[in-house]
Design a protein around this nucleic acid. Structure first.
Length: 555
RNA sequence: AGCCUUAUAGUGUAAUGGUAACACUCCGGAUUUUGAUUCCGUCAUUCUAGGUUCGAGUCCUAGUAAGGCUACCA
């Protein structure tokens, strides 16, 4: 887990700018719009921007809320975003900013452009503007308001600002041209009228800047050296540069684009995630089935593993889809070395050890981690009745089945070898009890001559077993057919993934702190739920990741 | 359709113009008191066709495919 950061093309640009003396330091920024919760895709951007800042002494990464659209933004989202960035392990220090705090500056820049003859107030309707913009094959045609005088524009813009127009009646447009093959450059809208309440500025403003106008100014104002964004802004860059060039800004940031993260089987669209939350297909933004940062946190994905994943997938301009297997490997890899082992039985089957009294052993000492002694050992109680996993017994064993079956031997993990001597069924034909005898003096020793014992199963002492609620989730929120997700979510939910079952776990686990991960041997990694956990009460676990299962091969 | 961008094993990434590398997955094999872990091994005409060069994954041209843009969202 200690790979050094590979130098991607962005880091190479930064290194070159540093060594050429173009910049003395590096300032990046993570600029979310507070209109939803962050997801694993944002983690890639966060790790990039904050990661770069960490790699260079004196460099910084700003956290800036790009809150220029009051209709979609809420304070709840800014709080969750701050929490998620912190949880991922990054610190913006004093550099927390809001685009909305720059509204006056944006306004002044707009006035500047008007005075330069580079912006005009257009009172055509949205439909007319759209029509007059033309399309990729046909040039646009000038609005009837395009050639107004500077004085007229100044007055009209002031009228916009002071509330003299209703929404949709006027916009401020940059006067660039109407023939560019890049549609973003055809006299783009800079300001629109919105008589809406803003979470930060209240009702101070009724005109709000568009992203394309505001973003370069925000970056320049904060002396951002490298403004990193995703590929879809690629052909906004000429416009970004145009505003930087034509406005009175204190610095000239450079926009660099990289590919956003997309994962197989995973819904990453903010719009769709919002829909899932609003239509209550999930319990909230932090539902463990969601790929949101808060969802995967609650699901027990360690922040360090996510960081490592982001580092490993790299930064390029190639628009591909990463296999979630890469993510899941990093989760398992991290948990394997950090999660203590516990025994838990998800579907209990009672086993009696008939000769237990002949050699009573009230407890056994078991290692907390098979490869790492620093995890120590624990004592587990042991009596003549235990629970094992229902699937660890087969009445008629299939080929290559090494666990318990009539007359067969199996090792109790950390304990002796037992041999099956019989079993009982209920009227429905289900096995309800397995009878065994233990082989004396086999704890901690190899199987005796003539005894074929190839597997060790986990178990829990029936006398002290405690209940827990365990929730199995398979992958992140998945779709059977990614294309089918368009418009509706009928195929999205996997009913099995919300199955809740009762586990019998070692009593020592009750009351464990929320967010603690364990490996329930042979069942996978589980985390005590950070939301539903009540100390001292029956613990609630979410499965963070199943164990890799190579059943059927080897041995 | 016009413009912009991208193209290296199944997946994601490497490779001063000089023997195509790493990780994951899959599949084999070894070890194993978790069928986990660990360890070892197999898997590529670098999208196609031309060109420049002693030499091209890398540079040039054309083609193909994929993504983006034609919002008073970001």
């Amino acid at each position: 887990m200690s790979d050094t950061q590979k130098a991607d093309f962005i880091r190479e640009i930064i290194a070159a700018d540093l060594s050429s003396g173009k910049h003395e330091t590096t300032i990046t920024r993570f600029p979310p719009e507070p209109n939803g919760y962050l997801h694993i895709g944002h983690a890639k951007s966060i790790c990039l921007n904050f990661g770069i800042a960490q790699e260079h002494p004196g460099a910084k990464c700003h956290l800036r809320f790009d809150d220029t659209n009051p209709e979609k933004e809420e304070t709840e989202y800014v709080e969750s975003i701050k929490e998620d960035v912190k949880w991922l392990g990054f610190d913006w220090g004093d550099d927390l900013y809001f685009a909305s705090n720059y509204f006056q500056f944006f306004h002044d820049c707009a006035v500047h452009l008007i005075k330069e003859g580079l912006a005009y107030v257009d009172e055509e309707s949205p439909e007319q503007i759209k029509l007059h913009r033309g399309n990729v094959n046909t040039p646009g045609t000038p609005s009837q308001f395009r050639e107004r005088s500077v004085e007229e524009n100044l007055a009209a813009f002031e009228k916009m600002r002071s509330g003299g127009f209703k929404e949709g009646e006027a916009v401020l447009r940059a006067k660039i041209g109407l023939t560019s093959s890049n549609m973003n450059m055809r006299d783009p809208v800079m300001y629109r009228i919105m008589h809406a309440h803003h979470h930060n500025t209240g009702s101070d403003w009724c005109i709000y800047p568009m992203y394309d106008f505001a973003h370069p100014l925000e970056d320049a104002l904060e002396h951002i050296t490298h403004s990193l964004c995703t590929l879809e802004f690629e052909n906004h860059r000429p416009l970004y540069d145009w505003f930087i060039k034509n406005c009175p800004v204190p610095s000239a940031p450079r926009q660099i684009e990289f590919a956003r993260l997309s994962l197989t089987y995973t819904i990453m669209s903010k719009r769709k995630l919002l829909q899932l939350v609003q239509e209550k297909h999930v319990s909230g933004w932090d539902d463990p089935r969601l790929p949101t940062i808060s969802g995967i946190r609650r699901r027990g994905y360690p922040a360090a593993a996510i960081r490592h994943f982001c580092k490993r997938i790299g930064i390029t301009k190639f628009n591909g889809t990463t296999d979630v297997a890469l993510l899941e490997h990093d989760i398992r890899d991290h948990l394997n070395s950090t999660a203590p082992r516990r025994m838990a039985v998800l579907e209990p089957l009672k086993v009696v050890i008939e000769n237990f009294a002949e050699e009573p052993t009230p407890s056994l000492v078991v290692s907390n981690h098979p490869q790492d002694e620093s995890f120590g050992e624990r004592e587990v109680s042991f009596s003549g009745e235990i629970f094992i996993e229902r699937e660890d017994f087969q009445e008629i064993p299939e080929k290559k089945y090494f666990r318990l079956a009539p007359d067969k031997y199996v090792r109790l993990r950390g304990g002796p070898i037992i041999q099956c001597t019989g079993f009982e069924k209920n009227d429905a034909g289900e096995i309800i009890l397995v009878r065994t005898k233990l082989l004396p003096d086999t704890t901690g020793k190899d199987s005796p001559e003539g005894v074929v014992c190839k597997a060790a199963i986990h178990w829990v002492d029936a006398a002290t077993a405690a209940d827990a609620e365990v929730r199995l989730y398979d992958r992140l929120f998945t779709v059977e057919d990614p294309d089918a997700a368009e418009g509706g979510f009928t195929t999205v939910l996997n009913p099995d993934s919300v199955k809740t079952i009762t586990a019998k776990i070692e009593a020592s686990l009750a009351g464990e702190a929320p967010g603690t991960s364990f490996q329930f041997e042979r069942n996978g990694y589980f985390v005590t739920d950070t939301k539903d956990h009540v100390p001292g009460d029956k613990p609630v676990f979410n499965r963070t990741a199943p164990l890799r299962d190579s059943w059927g091969k080897g041995r």
